[in-house]
Design a protein around this nucleic acid. Structure first.
Length: 438
DNA sequence: TCTGGGGTCCTAGGACCC
DNA sequence: TCTGGGGTCCTAGGACCC
């Protein structure tokens, strides 16, 4: 994660990966003590499948991604709790974790909602163990979340260290020194498919060549890997050897594309229902775009039937719209999306999901406006920009969707089911936890 | 009845150019 | 009998991630 390719030394380059254990479930538990000690799961957006599991739920054999209807009887038999996902809460908890991490390093890279990389260069091996423990304890005390801390010379090794931390019963912290005996043993007992960046396909190809463990990948001839595989795997091999290839990313990179899509609560047969869903998605996408101060050159709309329903006719398609000029104007995007839906729509299919993608994003500040733009158009554009600002402001203060284009979105078949959502404990005044004195 | 959503990077191959 | 050889740019799709 630094560009220097120095050999590992106790005082060298160290990366920590801090990762929330069963993150979504732990966020729910932080505000609901009744959930401790019980099997708990968090469901995907449409209450469709399980996307987070407590240890107790894992122990019951409920797999990641299981469709809810398939495990429902098991759930009730064991008095397990399933909750709808509450991403507003999880995002806020994630922010709090990163706030704490900022005290331990001036290089913190949030990698996903539940994990962050930290630069811990300069510590000795002993100090690293201690530092890891302090990080873990501080987050437990201040944010009430359990985390695992993996520390190693490179990001790829830190991922493995993090796995080891989680597997050990009590520690929650693991420092991986790849030059040590213990380090070698860890790599020897790790399946190559469990290495970060080695998916199912690559793992199969590697196994056919007799490369079955992380250690064997590390020790494989460079030529073989370079010749037979892609650049990413070649980098992974170097990272396993302790040579950093992945570098710290700026703390808040602008997305290169934005997507908003949802499965419908119930299948939709009417074009106007799907259009209503897309209207919400476009507005949310435009909001995200303005949040990161970008403009989009193109917008794409897609819709699809339910691929699991083999008994129904299938149709899925997408179309791209190119704007005359890069834009972040919700109205302009809605108009484009409407035209695309009209062209995509086919009568007689039961649609299951629709979404919008904003692509070819450019920096709003540096966007090159057409030199031919008349001053009248320019005035109009500024007016629209102010309108968008006001809308964003209101929605930020009053809650998402308070102000929107077109009819309100409170109902409709496409609305996601969210039957068991927890309150927004930390981000909404109306839903603050209440303490009752007796 | 009921199966998530949102990203990134890389590569191959076509179109086009000289 | 003989039918170039590179470049660059773009896009679709694969693979992977959480």
């Amino acid at each position: 994660m630094s560009s220097t390719k120095s050999k590992t030394s106790p005082l060298g380059h160290w990366v920590a990966l801090v990762d929330g254990s069963n993150f979504f479930v732990s966020c729910e538990r932080a505000f609901a003590p009744r959930l401790h000690g019980r099997p708990v799961g968090v469901m995907s957006n449409n209450d469709g499948c399980i996307i987070a599991r407590s240890d107790e739920l894992k122990a019951l054999g409920v797999a990641m991604g299981s469709p809810v209807y398939k495990v429902e009887s098991l759930i009730s038999r064991h008095r397990a709790v399933l909750l709808s996902s509450n991403f507003t809460l999880y995002a806020d908890m994630s922010r709090r974790v990163n706030e704490v991490l900022g005290r331990f390093s001036n290089q913190v890279e949030p990698y996903s909602i539940d994990e962050s990389f930290l630069d811990l260069s300069g510590f000795t091996l002993d100090d690293l163990w201690e530092q890891g423990r302090v990080i873990e304890e501080t987050i437990a005390q201040e944010v009430h979340l359990p985390v695992g801390v993996g520390i190693a010379p490179t990001a790829t090794l830190a991922k493995l260290a993090n796995r080891a931390a989680k597997q050990s019963q009590d520690a929650k912290v693991y420092v991986l020194d790849p030059e040590s005996k213990a380090g070698q043993e860890l790599l020897e007992t790790t399946d190559v498919g469990d290495v970060w960046g080695v998916g199912k396909r690559l793992a199969e190809r590697l196994q056919r060549l007799g490369i079955a463990t992380a250690w064997q990948l590390r020790e494989a001839p460079r030529d073989l890997i370079k010749k037979r595989f892609s650049l990413p795997l070649s980098r992974i091999q170097l990272e396993l050897r302790g040579e950093a290839c992945r570098h710290f990313q700026p703390s808040d990179p602008r997305r290169k594309q934005l997507r908003v899509s949802r499965s419908f609560g119930q299948a939709c047969y009417q074009e106007d229902e799907v259009t209503a869903a897309l209207r919400q998605h476009v507005q949310r996408a435009a909001e995200k775009l303005r949040e990161q101060k970008s403009l989009a050159k193109t917008l794409s709309v897609f819709l699809t039937t339910n691929p699991f329903r083999k008994d129904l006719p299938q149709h899925s398609d997408s179309l791209v719209w190119e704007f005359a000029q890069p834009t972040a104007d919700t109205g302009e995007m809605l108009a484009a999306a409407r035209k695309l839906v009209r062209r995509l729509w086919r009568e007689g299919y039961s649609y299951h999901k629709a979404g919008v993608l904003l692509m070819q994003l450019v920096d709003a500040g540096q966007a090159q406006m057409s030199l031919l733009e008349e001053s009248e158009d320019h005035g109009h554009r500024l007016q629209r920009e102010r309108l968008m600002q006001v809308m964003d402001e209101v929605n930020r203060k009053q809650g998402r969707g308070s102000l929107s284009f077109g009819p309100g979105a409170s109902s409709g078949r496409w609305r996601a089911r969210q039957t068991r959502r927890s309150p927004e404990y930390t981000t909404c005044w109306q839903e603050l936890p209440q303490v009752v004195a007796k």
